[in-house]
Design a binder for these strands. Structure first.
Lengths: 151, 151
DNA sequence: TATTGTTATACTCTATAACTATA
DNA sequence: TATAGTTATAGAGTATAACAATA
Protein backbone atom coordinates (compact mmCIF):
# COMPACT_ATOMS: atom_id res chain seq x y z
CA UNK A 1 0.00 0.00 0.00
CA UNK A 2 0.89 3.66 -0.16
CA UNK A 3 3.04 3.56 -3.29
CA UNK A 4 2.35 7.06 -4.58
CA UNK A 5 6.01 8.08 -4.60
CA UNK A 6 8.17 5.41 -2.98
CA UNK A 7 10.78 6.81 -0.60
CA UNK A 8 13.14 3.95 -1.31
CA UNK A 9 13.68 5.11 -4.89
CA UNK A 10 13.77 8.85 -4.21
CA UNK A 11 16.82 10.85 -5.22
CA UNK A 12 17.71 11.54 -1.62
CA UNK A 13 17.54 7.97 -0.45
CA UNK A 14 19.41 6.64 -3.47
CA UNK A 15 22.23 9.14 -3.00
CA UNK A 16 22.33 8.39 0.72
CA UNK A 17 22.47 4.65 0.14
CA UNK A 18 24.97 4.87 -2.72
CA UNK A 19 27.17 7.05 -0.54
CA UNK A 20 27.20 4.58 2.32
CA UNK A 21 27.62 1.64 -0.02
CA UNK A 22 30.46 3.16 -2.02
CA UNK A 23 32.08 4.24 1.22
CA UNK A 24 32.20 0.61 2.30
CA UNK A 25 33.81 -0.36 -0.99
CA UNK A 26 36.43 2.34 -0.61
CA UNK A 27 37.21 1.20 2.92
CA UNK A 28 37.67 -2.35 1.65
CA UNK A 29 39.99 -1.26 -1.14
CA UNK A 30 42.06 1.01 1.08
CA UNK A 31 42.26 -1.71 3.70
CA UNK A 32 44.50 -3.60 1.32
CA UNK A 33 46.95 -0.72 1.56
CA UNK A 34 46.74 -0.79 5.35
CA UNK A 35 44.78 2.47 5.44
CA UNK A 36 41.21 3.60 6.06
CA UNK A 37 39.27 6.38 4.39
CA UNK A 38 39.87 8.88 7.12
CA UNK A 39 43.62 8.39 7.02
CA UNK A 40 43.67 8.77 3.25
CA UNK A 41 41.67 11.95 3.57
CA UNK A 42 44.34 13.35 5.87
CA UNK A 43 47.08 12.38 3.42
CA UNK A 44 45.09 13.89 0.57
CA UNK A 45 44.48 17.22 2.27
CA UNK A 46 48.17 17.45 3.04
CA UNK A 47 49.11 16.44 -0.50
CA UNK A 48 46.95 19.20 -1.93
CA UNK A 49 47.74 21.92 0.54
CA UNK A 50 51.30 21.10 1.50
CA UNK A 51 51.14 22.44 5.04
CA UNK A 52 48.30 22.56 7.56
CA UNK A 53 48.03 22.93 11.33
CA UNK A 54 46.13 20.30 13.29
CA UNK A 55 43.27 22.68 13.92
CA UNK A 56 42.94 23.56 10.26
CA UNK A 57 42.97 19.88 9.46
CA UNK A 58 40.31 19.19 12.09
CA UNK A 59 38.01 21.72 10.46
CA UNK A 60 38.53 20.24 7.01
CA UNK A 61 37.78 16.78 8.32
CA UNK A 62 34.83 18.07 10.33
CA UNK A 63 36.36 16.10 13.17
CA UNK A 64 37.03 16.92 16.79
CA UNK A 65 40.68 17.91 17.39
CA UNK A 66 40.94 15.26 20.12
CA UNK A 67 40.30 12.57 17.53
CA UNK A 68 42.82 14.03 15.12
CA UNK A 69 45.58 13.52 17.67
CA UNK A 70 45.43 9.73 17.59
CA UNK A 71 44.93 9.75 13.86
CA UNK A 72 48.15 11.71 13.37
CA UNK A 73 50.05 9.70 15.98
CA UNK A 74 49.42 6.62 13.91
CA UNK A 75 50.31 8.14 10.54
CA UNK A 76 53.41 9.77 12.00
CA UNK A 77 54.39 6.48 13.65
CA UNK A 78 54.37 4.90 10.20
CA UNK A 79 56.59 7.64 8.85
CA UNK A 80 53.94 9.03 6.49
CA UNK A 81 53.97 12.57 7.89
CA UNK A 82 55.85 14.82 10.28
CA UNK A 83 54.83 17.35 12.89
CA UNK A 84 56.93 20.52 13.11
CA UNK A 85 56.48 23.32 15.63
CA UNK A 86 55.44 26.53 13.93
CA UNK A 87 58.30 28.98 14.69
CA UNK A 88 55.83 31.87 14.46
CA UNK A 89 53.47 30.34 17.04
CA UNK A 90 55.04 27.59 19.04
CA UNK A 91 51.67 26.18 20.13
CA UNK A 92 50.89 25.04 16.61
CA UNK A 93 52.00 21.86 14.91
CA UNK A 94 52.55 22.20 11.19
CA UNK A 95 51.90 18.96 9.36
CA UNK A 96 53.81 17.85 6.31
CA UNK A 97 53.86 14.65 4.30
CA UNK A 98 57.05 12.65 4.00
CA UNK A 99 58.09 11.27 0.64
CA UNK A 100 56.70 7.93 1.70
CA UNK A 101 53.42 9.56 2.70
CA UNK A 102 53.19 11.25 -0.67
CA UNK A 103 53.86 7.97 -2.42
CA UNK A 104 51.22 6.10 -0.42
CA UNK A 105 48.69 8.87 -1.01
CA UNK A 106 49.24 8.48 -4.74
CA UNK A 107 48.72 4.74 -4.51
CA UNK A 108 45.55 5.26 -2.51
CA UNK A 109 44.28 7.68 -5.15
CA UNK A 110 44.85 5.12 -7.87
CA UNK A 111 43.04 2.45 -5.87
CA UNK A 112 40.10 4.75 -5.25
CA UNK A 113 39.83 5.66 -8.92
CA UNK A 114 39.74 2.00 -9.83
CA UNK A 115 37.02 1.42 -7.24
CA UNK A 116 35.07 4.36 -8.61
CA UNK A 117 35.30 3.12 -12.20
CA UNK A 118 33.97 -0.24 -11.11
CA UNK A 119 31.23 1.21 -8.98
CA UNK A 120 29.81 3.53 -11.62
CA UNK A 121 30.34 1.08 -14.46
CA UNK A 122 26.56 0.96 -15.18
CA UNK A 123 26.73 4.61 -16.31
CA UNK A 124 27.97 5.95 -19.63
CA UNK A 125 30.85 8.46 -19.54
CA UNK A 126 28.38 11.24 -20.36
CA UNK A 127 26.03 10.18 -17.55
CA UNK A 128 28.93 10.07 -15.14
CA UNK A 129 30.03 13.54 -16.04
CA UNK A 130 26.49 14.93 -15.83
CA UNK A 131 25.98 13.29 -12.47
CA UNK A 132 29.32 14.53 -11.23
CA UNK A 133 28.45 18.09 -12.31
CA UNK A 134 25.10 17.84 -10.52
CA UNK A 135 26.64 16.56 -7.30
CA UNK A 136 29.33 19.23 -7.48
CA UNK A 137 26.60 21.84 -7.75
CA UNK A 138 24.79 20.40 -4.75
CA UNK A 139 27.94 20.24 -2.63
CA UNK A 140 29.52 23.51 -3.71
CA UNK A 141 28.12 25.53 -0.84
CA UNK A 142 28.49 22.65 1.61
CA UNK A 143 32.13 21.62 1.34
CA UNK A 144 34.39 24.46 2.41
CA UNK A 145 37.36 23.38 0.34
CA UNK A 146 35.34 23.49 -2.88
CA UNK A 147 34.96 27.23 -2.58
CA UNK A 148 37.63 29.33 -4.32
CA UNK A 149 40.78 29.18 -2.23
CA UNK A 150 41.05 32.15 0.14
CA UNK A 151 44.80 31.42 0.56
CA UNK B 1 50.80 19.94 -6.18
CA UNK B 2 49.48 16.86 -7.96
CA UNK B 3 46.24 18.34 -9.23
CA UNK B 4 45.86 16.26 -12.39
CA UNK B 5 42.43 14.92 -11.40
CA UNK B 6 41.54 15.92 -7.87
CA UNK B 7 40.02 13.11 -5.80
CA UNK B 8 38.00 15.58 -3.76
CA UNK B 9 35.81 16.49 -6.75
CA UNK B 10 35.54 13.00 -8.23
CA UNK B 11 32.09 11.50 -8.76
CA UNK B 12 32.72 8.84 -6.16
CA UNK B 13 33.86 11.18 -3.44
CA UNK B 14 31.08 13.68 -4.10
CA UNK B 15 28.42 10.97 -3.92
CA UNK B 16 30.01 9.57 -0.78
CA UNK B 17 30.13 12.94 0.87
CA UNK B 18 26.65 14.00 -0.24
CA UNK B 19 25.31 10.72 1.06
CA UNK B 20 26.83 11.18 4.49
CA UNK B 21 25.85 14.83 4.59
CA UNK B 22 22.26 14.29 3.53
CA UNK B 23 22.04 11.40 5.97
CA UNK B 24 22.86 13.80 8.78
CA UNK B 25 20.16 16.18 7.60
CA UNK B 26 17.62 13.36 7.51
CA UNK B 27 18.57 12.28 11.03
CA UNK B 28 18.09 15.85 12.23
CA UNK B 29 14.67 16.15 10.60
CA UNK B 30 13.48 12.76 11.85
CA UNK B 31 14.76 13.56 15.31
CA UNK B 32 11.98 16.12 15.58
CA UNK B 33 9.52 13.24 15.22
CA UNK B 34 11.35 11.26 17.90
CA UNK B 35 12.72 8.80 15.35
CA UNK B 36 16.02 8.02 13.69
CA UNK B 37 16.70 6.91 10.13
CA UNK B 38 16.99 3.25 10.99
CA UNK B 39 13.66 3.22 12.78
CA UNK B 40 11.95 4.94 9.87
CA UNK B 41 13.47 2.42 7.49
CA UNK B 42 11.88 -0.36 9.52
CA UNK B 43 8.51 1.39 9.43
CA UNK B 44 8.88 1.99 5.70
CA UNK B 45 9.73 -1.60 4.84
CA UNK B 46 6.72 -2.74 6.84
CA UNK B 47 4.49 -0.10 5.26
CA UNK B 48 5.46 -1.28 1.78
CA UNK B 49 5.47 -5.02 2.37
CA UNK B 50 2.80 -5.35 5.03
CA UNK B 51 4.29 -8.39 6.77
CA UNK B 52 7.90 -9.46 7.32
CA UNK B 53 9.71 -11.77 9.70
CA UNK B 54 12.58 -10.42 11.77
CA UNK B 55 15.13 -12.32 9.70
CA UNK B 56 13.73 -10.98 6.45
CA UNK B 57 13.82 -7.51 7.92
CA UNK B 58 17.41 -8.00 9.07
CA UNK B 59 18.46 -8.86 5.54
CA UNK B 60 16.68 -5.82 4.11
CA UNK B 61 18.36 -3.58 6.62
CA UNK B 62 21.69 -5.34 6.12
CA UNK B 63 21.79 -5.46 9.89
CA UNK B 64 22.63 -8.22 12.33
CA UNK B 65 19.50 -9.88 13.76
CA UNK B 66 20.78 -9.25 17.29
CA UNK B 67 20.56 -5.52 16.65
CA UNK B 68 17.10 -5.77 15.16
CA UNK B 69 15.79 -7.17 18.44
CA UNK B 70 16.37 -3.98 20.41
CA UNK B 71 15.24 -1.85 17.50
CA UNK B 72 11.90 -3.66 17.42
CA UNK B 73 11.57 -3.72 21.21
CA UNK B 74 11.63 0.05 21.15
CA UNK B 75 9.20 0.51 18.25
CA UNK B 76 6.84 -2.07 19.72
CA UNK B 77 7.09 -0.40 23.13
CA UNK B 78 5.85 2.79 21.52
CA UNK B 79 2.92 0.96 19.96
CA UNK B 80 4.12 1.46 16.39
CA UNK B 81 4.23 -2.21 15.43
CA UNK B 82 3.27 -5.64 16.73
CA UNK B 83 4.97 -9.02 16.79
CA UNK B 84 2.81 -12.06 16.07
CA UNK B 85 3.94 -15.68 16.12
CA UNK B 86 3.71 -17.24 12.67
CA UNK B 87 1.18 -20.07 13.06
CA UNK B 88 2.90 -21.96 10.23
CA UNK B 89 6.33 -21.77 11.93
CA UNK B 90 6.16 -20.88 15.55
CA UNK B 91 9.83 -19.82 15.67
CA UNK B 92 9.13 -16.80 13.49
CA UNK B 93 7.81 -13.42 14.52
CA UNK B 94 5.69 -11.75 11.89
CA UNK B 95 5.91 -7.98 12.11
CA UNK B 96 3.03 -5.68 11.34
CA UNK B 97 2.52 -1.94 11.68
CA UNK B 98 -0.19 -0.58 13.92
CA UNK B 99 -2.39 2.25 12.70
CA UNK B 100 -0.26 4.63 14.71
CA UNK B 101 2.89 3.20 13.13
CA UNK B 102 1.43 3.69 9.69
CA UNK B 103 0.52 7.26 10.52
CA UNK B 104 3.97 8.10 11.86
CA UNK B 105 5.63 6.48 8.85
CA UNK B 106 3.59 8.77 6.60
CA UNK B 107 4.65 11.82 8.61
CA UNK B 108 8.28 10.74 8.41
CA UNK B 109 7.97 10.34 4.65
CA UNK B 110 6.63 13.88 4.32
CA UNK B 111 9.45 15.24 6.44
CA UNK B 112 12.06 13.40 4.40
CA UNK B 113 10.60 14.68 1.14
CA UNK B 114 10.78 18.22 2.42
CA UNK B 115 14.40 17.67 3.46
CA UNK B 116 15.17 16.25 0.03
CA UNK B 117 13.60 19.19 -1.77
CA UNK B 118 15.69 21.56 0.27
CA UNK B 119 18.88 19.60 -0.14
CA UNK B 120 18.71 19.29 -3.92
CA UNK B 121 17.36 22.79 -4.41
CA UNK B 122 20.47 23.79 -6.46
CA UNK B 123 19.34 21.37 -9.19
CA UNK B 124 16.63 21.93 -11.81
CA UNK B 125 13.76 19.41 -11.90
CA UNK B 126 15.25 17.88 -15.06
CA UNK B 127 18.68 17.54 -13.43
CA UNK B 128 17.13 15.93 -10.39
CA UNK B 129 15.29 13.37 -12.47
CA UNK B 130 18.38 12.59 -14.59
CA UNK B 131 20.47 12.20 -11.47
CA UNK B 132 17.84 10.04 -9.85
CA UNK B 133 17.69 7.81 -12.92
CA UNK B 134 21.48 7.48 -12.92
CA UNK B 135 21.64 6.58 -9.22
CA UNK B 136 18.80 4.11 -9.68
CA UNK B 137 20.78 2.46 -12.46
CA UNK B 138 23.86 2.26 -10.25
CA UNK B 139 21.98 0.82 -7.30
CA UNK B 140 19.65 -1.52 -9.18
CA UNK B 141 21.88 -4.55 -8.83
CA UNK B 142 22.97 -3.57 -5.33
CA UNK B 143 19.74 -3.04 -3.42
CA UNK B 144 17.79 -6.29 -3.24
CA UNK B 145 14.42 -4.66 -2.88
CA UNK B 146 14.82 -2.71 -6.12
CA UNK B 147 14.80 -5.94 -8.11
CA UNK B 148 11.40 -7.01 -9.41
CA UNK B 149 9.41 -8.43 -6.52
CA UNK B 150 9.72 -12.23 -6.37
CA UNK B 151 6.29 -12.65 -4.71
C1' DT C 1 20.68 -31.24 13.66
C1' DA C 2 19.45 -26.56 11.86
C1' DT C 3 16.98 -22.21 12.34
C1' DT C 4 14.57 -17.99 14.67
C1' DG C 5 14.82 -15.01 17.99
C1' DT C 6 17.07 -13.54 22.34
C1' DT C 7 20.55 -12.26 25.91
C1' DA C 8 25.19 -11.18 27.70
C1' DT C 9 29.89 -9.71 27.09
C1' DA C 10 33.78 -7.52 25.17
C1' DC C 11 35.43 -4.21 21.96
C1' DT C 12 35.53 0.06 19.21
C1' DC C 13 34.49 4.65 18.52
C1' DT C 14 33.38 9.10 20.09
C1' DA C 15 32.00 13.09 23.03
C1' DT C 16 33.26 15.62 27.18
C1' DA C 17 36.09 17.55 30.44
C1' DA C 18 40.41 18.65 32.23
C1' DC C 19 45.31 19.54 31.65
C1' DT C 20 50.07 21.75 29.42
C1' DA C 21 52.42 24.99 26.95
C1' DT C 22 52.32 28.84 24.67
C1' DA C 23 50.24 33.40 23.27
C1' DT D 1 42.76 35.29 29.69
C1' DA D 2 42.48 32.61 25.38
C1' DT D 3 44.23 29.14 22.11
C1' DA D 4 46.67 24.61 20.15
C1' DG D 5 47.40 20.34 21.25
C1' DT D 6 47.02 16.42 24.44
C1' DT D 7 45.22 12.93 27.79
C1' DA D 8 41.68 10.40 30.48
C1' DT D 9 37.08 8.87 31.28
C1' DA D 10 32.50 7.63 30.37
C1' DG D 11 28.89 6.49 27.09
C1' DA D 12 26.90 4.74 22.75
C1' DG D 13 26.95 1.41 19.31
C1' DT D 14 28.38 -3.09 17.54
C1' DA D 15 30.21 -7.79 16.83
C1' DT D 16 30.62 -12.29 18.85
C1' DA D 17 29.28 -16.14 21.24
C1' DA D 18 26.05 -18.70 23.71
C1' DC D 19 21.27 -19.95 24.76
C1' DA D 20 15.89 -21.37 24.40
C1' DA D 21 12.26 -22.72 21.58
C1' DT D 22 10.84 -24.81 17.52
C1' DA D 23 11.49 -27.21 13.15
Amino acid sequence: MAHEQPVLTSLGYLVLKAGVHFHQKVEDVLGELGLNGRQVLVLTFLAEDDVLSQLELSRRLALDPTIVVGLLDDLQGRGLLERHRDPADRRRHLLELTDEGRKLQAEATTAMRRAEDEYFEPLSPAQREDTRAAMLEVMRSRLPWLAPRPT
